[in-house]
Nucleic acid binder design. Structure first.
Lengths: 233, 233
DNA sequence: ACAAAAGTGTTGAGCGTACACCCATGG
DNA sequence: CCATGGGTGTACGCTCAACACTTTTGT
């Protein structure tokens, strides 16, 4: 089918919000821009979609190029698309944004495309004039999505190692929601939610205090009942 | 815009899931395709994004072109983007899907682009071989999003007129969730959720039975507490 | 008068919050 | 033996589901 372009063409890119928790703060992986526009500002990892590549494939490829993570372990979730005419002053670009969550924020691979990538606290990046393009808006949507999904999915377990203690999981919720939770009630709540946690059968001791049982994610698609943000403290 | 393309070009379109309730069934607005590919199948309304148009603007324009609705009254929410390489056999097209909800399913405007547009039950459209392209997947996401948002937003009020009775609102939930709700408990629940309903101060009588109070949407961004689908029957 | 729909009252079960309390370790 | 964090027990209050009951209309 021959089609002379009656319709306009666009560049299509993917941008990835990669979240982790470092030093009890939510952080995102960003690269510093060397060129105009927005030289010196931070930008979300991302790049152009290849001609024969699905959007998810493109996001997975970019994620792998920027971090040392085995792609099989990471879930990517589509956030939204951004295509305002002036969002990139050079061309008309529509960007499909994705969300990924990693445990502990591994150091970006040396020698890769992402040699200049760094973890930066989200609070810093969302300040005025830190991020390039409309990336503050994209990051904001990613953070809000992650916060919301903690309530009714097992997303929190993606912030911690494969095997984790209830206290480590609680720390994720406390950092993401910005307030402390009652340790006892939290423990009961997560261990009794069907499919959320699976007992490993070993315990670890980190510093003083009684050793903590290790758990794995139990595979539940949705949490019933959810861990509500408004109530339960 | 002169640029030697180091990077590939894409067509970008918007597709809109427009939902309504007709004859106690969820229905979507679709147009019948006259040409290959997928001639004779139904397709979601949509079209190409203009060169200097934001994605939301494009969706609003397409919605207006297909229906008789004043655009100020309708909220459009972005669903997701779809860009698998083969989804349109003719070109590489990335489509940004949007969700809109209308009361009562007004007849599409005669003489407009949408002369061929019709309301069809969602259950019918989701059957094998009814929808063109990947539109079944898009419609499915729209329906699931709408179902979920009934729980914690005032979305249900967009399915009914500006002024409505509690029973009319209940019918929306019953159709969307596929089971009956206790009238008394539902009434108490929605009238006591802060910001959900605002009493108009008039009553209407439709058929036998005590006249029903009229309400308007109260403007609440989120419903606290939510109307949970799993519990409460 | 009767049926039907709107809306309120009531009750018992279950859940969440707060907080007391015991357990098991490091120092 | 004390501090610290892990984990369980308990009691009170609140919400929800079920359903009885009153109100107000059409026929």
């Amino acid at each position: 089918m021959v089609y002379t372009s009656r319709y306009p063409f666009f560049y299509v890119t993917v941008d990835i919000v990669i979240l982790t928790i470092r030093e009890d703060a939510l952080a995102a992986l960003v690269v510093q821009r060397g060129e105009e526009p927005f030289a010196g500002r931070w930008a979300l990892p991302g790049g152009f979609v290849d001609p024969d590549e699905d959007l998810l494939e493109a996001a997975v490829r970019e994620l792998r190029e920027e971090t040392a993570v085995a792609t099989g372990d990471v879930r990517l979730e589509q956030l939204a698309s951004f295509g305002a005419p002036g969002r990139d002053p050079r061309h008309r670009v529509v960007s499909v944004a994705w969300l990924a969550v990693l445990p502990h924020g591994p150091e970006p691979r040396a020698g890769s495309d992402a040699a200049g990538a760094e973890w930066k606290p989200v609070d810093f990046l969302l300040g005025e004039g830190r991020l390039a393009f409309d990336h503050a808006e994209i990051l904001g949507e990613g953070v809000e999505r992650a916060r919301a999904k903690l309530e009714y999915t097992g997303l929190a377990t993606e912030f911690v190692d494969d095997e984790f203690t209830v206290a480590e999981l609680r720390r994720v919720y406390e950092v993401m929601w910005g307030h402390r939770l009652d340790p006892g009630n939290f423990h009961r709540k997560v261990t009794r939610t069907p499919g959320f946690l699976e007992r490993v059968g070993r315990a670890v001791t980190r510093g003083p205090g009684r050793p903590a049982e290790l758990f794995r994610f139990g595979g539940a698609e949705v949490l019933h009942p959810p861990l509500t943000r408004s109530t339960f403290g």
